[in-house]
Write a protein that binds this DNA or RNA. Structure first.
Length: 255
DNA sequence: CGGGCCTCCCCT
DNA sequence: AGGGGAGGCCCG
């Protein structure tokens, strides 16, 4: 086949995939350039993928919040961002239709924290502002967010520094019925998870924690989390890597 | 270990 | 703008 035809057909398929999903492309945040794929068909309604400067979100208009956030976490980014002040700027994501997004008033005086999916401190200072988009925020029990979850985020940054760089996918689980909500609008996740993938070492693993007070957490394989989430989080990850149960640093909770 | 100090992530 | 609780880190 002539080279021009190959190039043209590649371009057409690329454009077609963009049109088909109505989504921009940001392969740099995904292992193998491949974003998560929904397996559970119930999630696909009102599902959108957003590319930001420092990370990507898969967003559900049904829960009015992110299902997952993806980033490439590097030692360099963490070192560069160290010590930079945080400037809160929580705001609704106007890329979403009103019918699919959460608003500040949903969270106000709700008793729930606005919990980051992709963490503010993981991003470079110039990219941090977009972590406050509500498309990256879920209702989180305050004791969980400020306690064990904060420790899991620290442990994850430690792993990134130790390994040089890792792909990270953080997400929310909505399990069982009935699910609780803020004002009948924003569905409250029952659990959160954070999975890491070290491509050079072909190692992967996840933390999970129930969205409750207390410092309980568990370590799980990517395969287990994918099954619970109904999402193929890392389409490019070999099955044997998904099945691994690697040792992750203990997120310490003081007792 | 314990204490002091810093970091994190929110709240009003 | 100011506050606070929890956790991390370092030093003894």
């Amino acid at each position: 086949m002539p080279k021009t035809i190959i190039v043209v057909s590649l371009l057409i398929s690329l454009i077609a995939s963009q049109i088909a999903f109505g989504q921009p492309s940001c392969p740099e945040f995904f292992a193998g350039g491949q974003p998560p794929v929904l397996v559970n068909a119930k999630l696909s309604n009102k599902y959108r993928l957003f590319c930001n400067s420092g990370f990507a979100n898969g967003h559900s208009g049904l829960t009015r919040g992110p299902l997952w956030g993806a980033e490439l976490l590097t030692k360099q980014d963490i070192d560069e961002g160290r010590g930079a002040a945080r400037h809160d700027n929580f705001r609704p994501d106007t890329r979403l239709p009103v019918s699919e997004r959460s608003e500040l008033k949903d969270y106000s005086r709700s008793g729930y924290d606005r919990g980051h999916i992709v963490n503010n401190r993981d991003l470079t200072p110039e990219n941090r502002d977009e972590s406050f988009l509500l498309s990256n925020i879920v209702p989180q029990v305050p004791e969980n967010n400020r306690g064990i979850w904060s420790a899991i985020e620290s442990a994850t940054r430690y792993e990134a520094k130790r390994r040089g760089q890792i792909y990270v996918i953080t997400g929310a689980l909505f399990q069982g019925q009935p699910l609780q909500s803020l004002k009948g609008r924003v569905i409250i996740p029952t659990s959160l998870y954070k999975c890491i993938y070290d491509v050079s070492k072909q190692q992967a693993g996840c933390y999970t924690t129930a969205n409750t007070s207390g410092d309980q957490y568990a370590v799980a394989s990517v395969a287990e989390v994918e099954l619970a989430a109904g999402i193929n989080l890392f389409p490019a990850m070999p099955l044997q890597v998904k099945m691994q149960l690697i040792k992750l640093p203990v997120p310490k909770a003081r007792r």
